[in-house]
């Protein structure tokens, strides 16, 4: 079981309010991702749930039990840290066994659980090594192993992939998702990378300045961003935001249109412009088009076969049904 409820949770560091009154319910078995730019309070929120920080106001419930005053050890949660936080003086085996040892689990039982976790994470051959003899990905798996042996109510991940190189990161992403499917345990995952959020989450919580901007499934956030911040943060490449004359035509202060909802043509269209930088990904090509009268270039997705060069004159046509409209406060207009 791992249902976590935050009600009216607030955290101040001295004068500064890092988390402003915030309520959220995380369902049992859910994979939830906290995402936001650095300094938005996502890690602090995770640490409040972990009990590594005291909350200033409000209440945290874990499985219906008030956990606000409980020390981290008593909350039944496990955490994977950004730096992995492995104990450098212990072997992999001892690292994984550490929570069991602290809980006073019998030795033979400890061995069995460690072996089991090691098998699941492909660590069996490395059990007697020290952490510094392992690669980044292996260390990451040890950290996960240490978290899963004690069968926690929920897993907390604090930017666990940010120290890995790009290729490994994709692999670990899949492994963690796979693990979630297998264990069916609640996972709370903090990242600043919206791609990680989109690919892994059941639900995403977008945070900014200590406030929740929007909560929803990845596709909800992508298709219906509730405000300018979410629209700008979710999706790669970044959504095109236009204001001024073009947005007034649609009765909004700002409009947003994603790169795949604009068609490009050399013959004719709504917005004339010229090709700037193009990024070839093979299957797709992203063109950055400087439009007449617009200040920022507009990003457009085209098929990988389209052959246009720097400086070519083109015309862009947005799909008006896919335009997101925002009012002067940045809120979505439907």
């Amino acid at each position: 079981m791992g249902r976590i409820t935050l009600s009216q949770v607030k955290k101040d560091f001295g004068e500064v309010s890092v988390i402003q009154k915030l309520s959220l319910t995380i369902e049992d078995g859910e994979f939830i991702v906290f995402v936001g730019p650095s300094g938005c309070g996502k890690s602090t929120l995770l640490r409040l749930i972990a009990g590594l920080e005291d909350i200033t106001e409000g209440q945290i419930e874990i499985d219906g039990r008030n956990a606000t005053e409980l020390p981290p050890a008593k909350r039944g949660l496990a955490m994977v840290f950004q730096s992995y936080a492995l104990y450098p003086h212990m072997s992999v085996r001892k690292n994984i066994a550490f929570p069991l040892r602290m809980a006073g689990v019998e030795k033979s039982q400890q061995d069995r659980l460690v072996e089991e976790a090691a098998r699941m994470l492909n660590l069996t051959d490395y059990l007697d090594r020290r952490p510094r003899q392992l690669s980044g990905g292996q260390r990451q798996r040890v950290a996960i192993g240490r978290a899963i042996v004690r069968k926690p109510a929920a897993f907390l991940f604090d930017e666990p992939l940010s120290n890995l190189d790009a290729a490994l990161r994709v692999g670990m992403r899949l492994e963690i998702s796979e693990l979630h499917k297998r264990l069916e345990t609640t996972m709370i995952y903090v990242t600043h990378d919206q791609v990680e959020a989109m690919t892994m989450a059941d639900r995403i919580v977008v945070l900014n300045d200590g406030r929740i901007e929007q909560v929803g499934t990845p596709l909800e956030l992508y298709r219906k961003p509730g405000n300018l911040f979410v629209a700008g943060f979710v999706g790669s490449p970044k959504i095109n935001l236009l204001s001024g004359a073009e947005s007034r035509k649609h009765g909004a202060a700002t409009i947003g249109i994603r790169s795949e909802h604009i068609s490009i043509s050399t013959e004719g269209g709504d917005w004339p412009g010229s090709i700037g930088v193009s990024e070839h990904l093979g299957s797709d090509t992203f063109f950055h088009v400087a439009c007449e009268g617009g200040d920022a270039p507009i990003t457009v997705r085209a098929d990988g076969e389209v052959d246009l060069k720097y400086g070519d004159k083109v015309f862009l046509t947005p799909d008006t049904a896919q335009i997101h409209k925002f009012d002067s406060r940045g809120l979505r207009i439907d």
Binding site: A50, L52, P71, P72, A73, L77, A78, M79, F81, Q82, S83, A85, L86, Y87, P88, H89, F98, P99, M102, A103, R146, R150
Partner: peptide, 27 residues
Amino acid sequence: VPGEILEAARMDGATLRKELFYVLTPM
């Protein structure tokens, strides 16, 4: 000694005494 390691020990259920004895002192 990275603070995260001590926090990890705390999450793993170590009391202050155990944290000092098993993690901090050896490191």
